[in-house]
Design a binder for these strands. Structure first.
Length: 195
DNA sequence: TAGAGGATTGAT
DNA sequence: TCAATCCTCTAC
């Protein structure tokens, strides 16, 4: 079952980041489906410095963060990697959840081909890697997540005790906000990004 | 319009 | 520990 817009348009981005663990993200490109279970996420809000939209600063890049929840925010990081976020909350409340790691479910062969490797190990364990494995790039920026080529589905049930909350990665510049425990992952899951 | 740097990754 | 790599943002 596809996750509906109302799920993403709720106010609490941290809660949504937690609840996304266990759900499935899928793409269909040239008729070929690849998908994976979300095992690691991070929350971002206009209220804190780690966020591109901190203090409601809108730029050409982060414009879609100000749209209604349920669309994709994809941007290029370090000139090399596409990072995939799900925009949440109502319009003009710029919040999003970064998807950091997946556990492959469907289309493994195609993922291996895209990653130019023969081992499934760690193939989607990292925000830059999972976009490449699923074929997500900036052409998906602003796309509605209920469409036929990029969507979120219900997945596995996750127990609260299996969710670990820690600080986010790569936002040292955010000062005190870098200490927020807004990164979530499934305990003991082999597909979580290393760090 | 130039210059700096980044929500990363993989090799050394 | 460091380079790859290029787009975005800021300041001039």
């Amino acid at each position: 079952m596809i996750v509906s817009k109302s799920f993403f348009q709720r106010k609490n981005v941290v809660q949504i980041a937690k609840e996304l663990l266990g759900k499935t993200i899928a793409t269909e490109i040239y008729g070929q489906v690849t998908s994976g279970i979300i095992v690691e996420t991070e929350a971002y809000s206009f209220r804190e410095r780690g966020c591109h939209a901190y203090q409601n600063r809108m730029t050409e890049r982060n414009r879609v963060m100000f749209e209604e929840g349920g669309v994709a925010y994809v941007y290029l990081c370090y000139g090399i990697h596409n990072l995939f976020n799900i925009v949440t909350n109502k319009s003009d409340k710029a919040e999003a959840v970064l998807i950091r790691s997946l556990q492959p479910v469907q289309g493994e062969d195609l993922m291996l081909e895209r990653m130019r490797t023969t081992s499934l190990k760690r193939i989607t364990s990292g925000p830059g890697k999972l976009t490449k494995a699923l074929g997500i790039d900036r052409t998906h920026n602003g796309k509605d997540l209920m469409t036929s080529d990029l969507w979120i589905e219900e997945g596995i049930r996750v127990a609260k005790k299996d969710i670990v909350a820690v600080t986010r990665i790569g936002i040292d510049y955010a000062g005190e906000d870098a200490k927020l425990p807004w990164r979530f992952y499934l305990n003991d899951n082999a597909w979580v990004s290393k760090h």
